[in-house]
Every structure is written in C-alpha cells, then in structure tokens.
Amino acid sequence: MLIQHFKMLARYNTLANHKLYGACSQLSDKELKQIRPAFFKSIYGTLNHILIGDRIWMGRFTGQEISSTGLDLILYDDFEELRKIRVLEDEKIENFMSHLNQDFLTRTISYVNNQNKVYTDPVDMLLSHFFNHQTHHRGQIHDMLSQTEIAPPVLDMHRVLRP
C-alpha cells in the first residue's frame, strides 16, 4: 500500500512540475529572476532549489553521499535548460519509485545535513519528506506567480491526477 502511495506521489510530482513550468514559461527571464520576498529570492531561485533538493535526496536514496550545502545555487541559468533537466529528474524519480520494495521502506538512511549534523531516519519518513519538500516550494512559487500577470496553475493533487 505504501509503495503505491509513493508511486502516486511521484506521478503527481511530475504532473505538478509540468503544470508549474508551463505557467513559469510565460514569464520573461526578468520576471522569473525578480527578487521577491521569498526564501530563495525568486521564482527561478526556488525552481533551482527544488532540483537541488531532489538531487540530494535521490542521491541519499541510491546510496550516494551528496552534500546539502549550496541549497541556493543556480544550477542552470537558462530556463529552457532548467525545464529539460526538470523533466529528466522527474523521470528518474518516477523510475526509482516504480522499483520500490518493502525491504527498502523498512531501512534507515544516515546522512549529513546542511549544518553538518548526522541524522539517521527511516526511509518511509524521508520519502514522505522528499515529496512534501517539493510541494512546499511549489506552493511558494504558486504564491510568487500570483504576484505576476500569469495565473498560477491548479496544483491540487486530486485535480492534477484526475484523468
């Protein structure tokens, strides 16, 4: 049951990102990068942060130790390049979740956070955090979009996943 839940969240994540990037693509580069009252300073900064977070957590899930420093880096300065990389990352996430098994869900993962503290947490909680992190920051982008001329897309899970 939990495996199906994470598969559903992965699918939702892909579709929600697609909708969000579609709305963001209507903004100029200046609007995307405009400094706003947000933790990662702009729509563009927040899009990059989500990708950074995804790479950190996916690395941890696959047994790599990935540093969680530089959470505000701009990995890709060009929106279309960032969008293409987002699509590839979402494919990796869906593929990973499609191969989940019960053994993996009962494990723990030890990692070093961005304040150099070591934590060991259950995988099922970390997977939930992984998807919650994206949703949290998509909500921030949704709010920043509402400050532009572009209407933010509907991102309610039940509406995004509805056939």
Rank of each mutant, 00 (worst) to 15 (best):
M125K: 10
D121M: 07
N116K: 12
N17K: 09
I74Q: 09
Q147T: 07
T106G: 02
P152A: 10
L145E: 13
N113M: 01
S128L: 06
V154P: 10
L127F: 11
S67H: 06
F40N: 12
F104I: 00
P163N: 14
L27M: 13
I52S: 15
I150L: 06
F6T: 10
W57H: 01
L27N: 09
Y12R: 08
H18I: 01
E149T: 13
P122F: 02
D72W: 06
C24R: 10
C24G: 12
E89S: 11
K7L: 01
G22N: 11
S128Q: 13
G53I: 04
Y119H: 07
D143R: 02
E149K: 04
I56L: 04
F131Q: 03
T135V: 02
K84E: 14
F131M: 05
H158Q: 02
M157C: 04
D77K: 13
T69Y: 09
A23T: 08
N116V: 12
D121Y: 05
F6L: 09
H158R: 05
A10P: 08
H99F: 00
I3G: 00
A38C: 10
A38Y: 14
S42A: 08
F96Q: 04
C24I: 03
K84S: 09
M8S: 11
L75D: 15
F130I: 02
L2C: 01
L9K: 04
Q140F: 02
D29N: 05
I93R: 10
L161P: 15
K84M: 09
D124Q: 14
L145N: 10
I150D: 10
K33Y: 04
I52H: 12
I93H: 08
V154M: 12
N13L: 01
T69M: 06
L161E: 13
Q34S: 01
T120E: 15
H133W: 03
W57D: 08
G139I: 00
Y76F: 11
I3C: 01
F61Y: 11
Q140Y: 03
K33L: 03
Q102G: 00
S68P: 13
R83F: 06
E89Y: 04
S28P: 06
A38G: 07
Q102C: 00
N114E: 12
A10H: 03
A10Q: 12
